[in-house]
């Protein structure tokens, strides 16, 4: 239909690296994230004194930990931990209570703390505390609760880079000026580009969603087609965003140099860091970041299991972004031709 879209598709297909970057790279990164954030079977090492009461030792032994009973008394748990690098926690019992010392606020330490707490509540059921969440469950891995952010992040980033570089190349190699010396409309140019890359964006979205839900088994409570819709809108935003950024870059290298201004702030506001705790109302900045809209919408669908009525606000945000960026791009081409 649109010649320009066809050309963009053919050009991208001819460049194997771009195809890999759009279609394969997100899957690779998601697998990595899955491995990094998934459930671990780490067994924490916990040290107690010999003088610990027997019922507590028995309870601790029932937990999934490696328990070491130290013969000497431990006067300074901190020094002990510094001297014994393989130990995650020192757990001391005295008449006036328990004393738990952990190495550092890390996942290993928190696993140790969790196991100790479980042992304590098993000997004293009154102190048992049941934790439950409105969304998700306690046995969900970090990947299940944060994976959706990476979904939108990788999709946006790859499409952005490919599109920005393609536009920079068009500018620097003079093909854009040559193209605008033909009777093509400025709006046709931007529309053609967006449509061409949308084809890849759809392929990418389908691949990503099928892969995360069926192969990586990320728990999803909602409608997969809504996720596809969100990813498509987000990728379209990424194409136009890349085109806009290319105005400020005269080489592919400069596109990379601009990443600290274009992509990294969006990562911070994508939902990786919880926004409700950010000081000075900085959390409101998220409303100018396209990834925030995509990630929030996907969170509503995949984590909360909500439907269209929960995400239409975010979708409108993305649509508005697309409209504004489209207008900016069509106007930016005036540099080459006034009509």
């Amino acid at each position: 239909m649109n010649h320009l879209a066809k050309r963009v598709i053919r050009q991208t297909l001819n460049d194997k690296r771009s195809v890999m970057m759009i279609l394969i790279a997100p899957l690779l990164l998601l697998t990595l994230i899955y491995l990094l954030l998934g459930d671990t079977d780490y067994v924490p090492v916990i040290v107690i004194e010999e003088a610990t009461p027997q019922n507590l030792v028995t309870a601790l032994n029932k937990q999934d930990i490696e328990l070491i009973q130290e013969k000497q008394t431990i006067t300074s748990p901190k020094t002990y931990l510094t001297d014994n690098e393989h130990v995650d926690a020192v757990f001391l019992y005295s008449d006036n209570g328990f004393d738990m010392t952990l190495r550092e606020p890390s996942t290993k330490s928190s696993t140790a703390a969790k196991e100790i707490q479980a042992a304590l509540s098993s000997i004293n059921p009154a102190s048992k505390m049941e934790t439950s969440y409105v969304h998700g469950s306690t046995d969900q891995s970090t990947f299940d609760s944060l994976g959706y952010v990476f979904l939108s992040l990788f999709s946006f980033f790859m499409v952005f880079v490919i599109s920005a570089m393609a536009f920079v190349k068009e500018r620097s190699e003079g093909t854009l000026e040559r193209l605008l010396m033909t009777p093509i409309k400025r709006s046709e140019v931007i529309l053609g580009y967006t449509m061409g890359y949308s084809v890849f964006a759809i392929a990418q979205a389908i691949l990503i969603v099928l892969y995360t839900v069926y192969i990586l088994q990320m728990s999803s409570n909602g409608n997969i087609f809504l996720v596809l819709l969100v990813l498509l809108l987000l990728a379209t935003t990424a194409v136009l965003f890349g085109a806009t950024i290319s105005v400020f870059a005269s080489s592919a290298l400069q596109v990379v140099q601009l990443i600290p201004f274009t992509i990294i702030p969006q990562v911070f506001f994508s939902g990786l860091i919880s926004l409700d705790l950010i000081p000075y109302h900085l959390g409101n900045l998220s409303y100018i970041m396209p990834i925030f809209y995509g990630a929030s919408a996907i969170k509503e669908i995949m984590v909360y299991g909500n439907g269209f009525d929960a995400i239409w606000g975010y979708l409108s945000g993305l649509l508005l972004y697309i409209l504004v960026l489209y207008t900016i791009n069509v106007r930016a081409l005036k540099k080459f031709r006034n009509a």
């Binding site: 050309r7 050009q11 000026e177 040559r178």
Partner: peptide, 20 residues
Amino acid sequence: MTLLNEIGFMPQNNALYEDL
């Protein structure tokens, strides 16, 4: 713009799509 139909232009740099 409409006159561009009647104009042929060969730029000094080649301005070709190298991937095609």
